[in-house]
Amino acid sequence: MTIYLDVIWFLNLCIDLLLLYITALALKRNVTHWRMILAGMVASSIVLLLFTPIAWLFYQPWMKFLFSMGIVFIAFGFRRFAFFLQNLCMFYFVTFMTGGGLFALHYFWQTEVEILEGVVISKTSGYGSTFSWLFVLIGFPLVWYFSKSQLQQVEVKQVHYDQLAEVVITINEETVEVKGLIDSGNQLHDPITRAPVMILESTALQHLLSEEQIKALTSVDSISTDLEHPFAERMRIIPYRVVGHDQQFLIALKPDYVKIKHHEQEHQIKKVLVGINASNLANDGEYQCIVHPKLLITNTGKKLA
């Protein structure tokens, strides 16, 4: 069989570049494209070196390890040992996962095989595996798409994750457990008592109130003196302003207390109001309330065991 070495080398160059870019994407590294291309060329040069008198050297495990260290060093540099080790481990992880997947697909669809001295040999072309080419053709657009469009969303979610807390609201000995987002921009207070106001989705009260009772908490117009509501004595009306709108009003409830668990600390607050919001606060349901930052500052947290 004729082997087109230049085509095989180019295929390996593309695959090595993809592996390096996927590694950078997984670790959210800022990359220098010329360094990535240089690292890919060095990595793919092993295809040519296997046809030289020193080919035996690159079959040694220690040489393979040093070679991969050189590739990672060229691509990402060396800031500190932990940084380099993380890059190297992720590069190996991506390589093994990708290589294993391509190997499995190749032999899953392979129909023509030969047995040579007890070893199963599959037939392929001298241009490289079909699935390897498909990986290159599909992989590059995907890497470009995720690096350009999705990476910012991943970073935002990580910021949100660090700002999420477990919130338990107790009203009339009934509890509401939700995820809360600690929002430094929330500075809403009760103008009379100066109690901080946190915002809660109305859907979080479904196990406590009927639909009519929940609806009554989301519209100031629905409140009247003869309203028989289980939380009537706990209702407060909070005025607030939104940019571009006139002054509006929010119905808030006075809970028995609120517990907030954040960064292995538990805060129990009594001086707080819970504003009821009719719409969902997060489209993906990641959190159901917005926590006032003052609740974590003015109340000393208790270390959780």
Rank of each mutant, 00 (worst) to 15 (best):
H189S: 10
I74K: 11
N12P: 11
Q158N: 08
I71L: 03
E286Y: 15
E266D: 04
L11V: 07
Y4G: 09
L304T: 02
G101T: 05
I260A: 06
S149Q: 03
R35C: 08
D284A: 09
T175V: 07
D221V: 00
V167H: 05
F51C: 12
P255W: 08
A165G: 00
Y257N: 11
A216S: 09
R80W: 01
H263A: 14
K28H: 11
Y287P: 05
V136P: 15
V243M: 04
G126V: 13
T170H: 13
Q268R: 15
V176P: 01
L57G: 07
D226Y: 10
A282V: 04
F83I: 06
H262P: 07
V42A: 04
Y92A: 05
L181A: 00
G185H: 02
I46V: 12
T2V: 14
Y257Q: 14
P53F: 15
C89S: 09
E177M: 10
W109I: 09
W56M: 02
S222P: 00
L18V: 00
L25Q: 04
F131P: 12
V154D: 02
P53T: 14
L5I: 15
A216I: 02
E174H: 15
G180C: 02
V159A: 04
I121D: 04
F231L: 15
L200V: 00
K123H: 10
V272E: 13
Q265N: 07
H160D: 03
P191C: 05
E174D: 14
K254M: 09
T218H: 04
L304D: 02
K179A: 04
L19V: 00
E264K: 09
P239W: 03
